[in-house]
């Protein structure tokens, strides 16, 4: 997995060291792990769930669960990857609950209107259009697309994280790309 999942921080405290400190009773050491991973995890949750409030709920829940079950992290040096797995599943659960409640993004008329603004009218309109298009993907396709292209994971890493077969993951990514291409083209045409 590229990026910082499982790296040393500036103080030279590896994930493994911090995890062991927490397990030995130093709860404050967990703050170091939160600081290290919050931004990357926040990005995934926000892109997956489509709004910052739900993303923060999922992220908080993931960090609390990570703490509660820390002794079951079998490879403390890869705490980041383990925690990412928890977050992916929290996003699934929260997304499912939200889907029952209401389709927040699609029901948001203001977002719809912004999404139909041409790219040339500004970066914010483009961002809204892209976020709106991503929100319209099937959840499993959105998950696979984000893990592949935004988090830059290999299919093997995605398989370990999601439990899905590589062939299924490739299919989801391909469908997500096709769908996004179409949705973004529609925005351009407006």
């Amino acid at each position: 997995m590229r990026g910082s999942l499982g790296m040393f921080d500036m103080k030279g405290q590896s994930d493994g060291i911090l995890v062991r400190r927490v397990l030995e009773g130093d709860t404050a050491a967990y703050a170091g792990l939160i600081t290290r991973y919050r931004d990357r995890l926040a990005r995934y949750a926000t892109r997956m769930l489509g709004n910052s409030a739900d993303a923060e709920d999922a992220l908080q829940d993931a960090f609390v669960r990570g703490y509660r079950y820390l002794a079951r992290c079998t490879d403390p040096e890869r705490f980041g990857a383990w925690l990412f797995g928890i977050l992916v599943n929290r996003c699934r659960t929260l997304g499912s609950q939200r889907a029952r409640r209401q389709r927040l993004i699609i029901d948001d008329q203001a977002a719809l209107e912004r999404a139909s603004v041409s790219h040339s009218e500004g970066d914010e309109a483009l961002r809204d259009a892209i976020e709106h298009a991503v929100a319209q993907l099937q959840p499993d396709q959105r998950e696979a697309f984000l893990l592949k292209y935004v988090e830059e994971m290999s299919y093997q890493e995605m398989k370990q994280l999601t439990g899905a077969r590589i062939s299924a993951l490739k299919m989801r990514v391909a469908r997500a790309r096709q769908e996004l291409r179409q949705l973004l083209a529609e925005v351009d045409d407006d």
């Binding site: 939160i34 910052s52 923060e56 892209i130 935004v150």
Partner: peptide
């Protein structure tokens, strides 16, 4: 896929959390 590339670059941008996030998580613990 230029449009897609542009979308991916945008989706990769950092997301900022409320500055009190870490503190609230630690409080929950």
């Amino acid at each position: 896929d230029d449009g897609l590339k542009q979308a991916i670059e945008l989706l990769k941008r950092p997301v900022s959390l409320d500055s009190s996030f870490d503190e609230r998580v630690m409080k929950n613990l």
